[in-house]
Nucleic acid binder design. Structure first.
Length: 301
DNA sequence: AACATGCGCAACCGCTCAAAG
DNA sequence: TCTTTGAGCGGTTGCGCATGT
């Protein structure tokens, strides 16, 4: 019943591949293709597991791979797609010719996550940390707000330290043209504005504790007195373009990419579909991607 | 110059799902 | 229909190099 094992675990080499092994594998695949990974190491004269051969080929030896640095455009694509599909590296890599899921994953973990965090963006939710804090305050009943806020501040400590101590990033909106399309300008805030961000969080938490009615209504609010409708309509562009949560609203004018993604993905997971249908991450306010790439990609640190 | 620390990347691990038997 | 395995995927680890002290 079943199949025979792919390799004898005791008799396989592990660790770094040598140039000789690479040559053997490459030349064998050039002649015979990659039809059966279980047989490839045996037939190619390699003391490797088929799985190891497959990884070596797909992540390193494939002739169509790029090995250089990621371009700004590629990085933007990764961030954008990650906000839609999360850690579905193979799906993201499928949109980047010559890049593997391992490449994308490594680049995300070593570079892009830090860049986003440094910009005050939660790399998981793609929301600004200040926005997350405000959401916490609006979601919880008063007795719990303080405790959770404390816990959240602990979670976000590093990122908050960035906000407090490093070069800040702030946004200003311009309802700029007659077609109704908004554009965002992206500016480094002044020192007092940076401090103001933290103050707003503190004020928001204290207001959450003082205004229980507000907490249970659907209408959310802004610590400064504005509603979250304002946040969404004219507040932080991150809340509009980066967030993948249910708070995102707006017309979906990025349908082309959605369609393309769906075509590429074929059978997208239900979770990913729901996420996209529900949140429209690629909505009309995907302002982040109007930002100068050098600004987007420059880490604060 | 020597050591410590951090970073980037390649490889491995473990899980899931589909297919073989 | 059930069991077992292959293939693929995301998470994690470990090594080598670069940089800082």
């Amino acid at each position: 019943m079943g199949r025979i094992p792919c390799c004898e675990k005791d008799n396989v080499k592990r660790g770094q591949w040598t140039p000789e092994e690479d040559n053997k594998l490459s030349s064998y695949i050039a002649q015979h293709g990659t039809r059966n990974w279980r047989l490839i190491p045996k037939n190619a004269g390699l003391q490797r597991c088929g799985k190891s051969c497959r990884l070596r080929w797909t992540n390193y030896l494939r002739p169509d791979l790029k090995h250089g640095q990621f371009s700004d455009a590629e990085e933007q694509t990764i961030v954008k797609l990650h906000s839609v599909v999360g850690n579905r590296w193979s799906l993201i890599a499928a949109q980047l010719p010559g890049r593997t899921d391992n490449d994308v994953k490594n680049h995300w973990n070593t570079k892009l996550k830090k860049k986003l965090s440094g910009m005050g963006i939660d790399p998981v939710t793609h929301k600004p940390f200040s926005h997350l804090m405000a959401e916490i305050a609006t979601t919880l009943a008063p007795p719990n707000v303080a405790n959770l806020a404390e816990a959240a501040l602990g979670c976000f400590k590093d990122e908050m330290l960035h906000l407090l101590t490093k070069k800040p990033i702030d946004f200003q909106f311009q309802h700029s043209n007659t077609t109704g399309n908004r554009t965002a300008t992206y500016v480094n805030s002044k020192q007092e504005e940076r401090d103001d961000t933290i103050e707003k969080i503190k004020i928001g938490l204290s207001r959450a504790m003082q205004e229980p009615d507000m907490l249970h209504s659907q209408k959310s609010w802004d610590p400064t007195g504005a509603t979250s409708a304002n946040l969404t309509e004219g507040g932080s562009p991150w809340s509009q373009s980066m967030c993948a949560g249910s708070t995102c609203t707006g017309a979906d004018q990025q349908g082309d990419l959605h369609g393309k993604l769906d075509e590429e993905m074929g059978e997208v997971s239900e979770g990913a579909k729901e996420m996209r249908n529900g949140s429209n991450i690629f909505n009309s306010d995907s302002i982040l991607w109007d930002l100068p790439s050098e600004d987007l990609m420059n880490p604060i640190v």
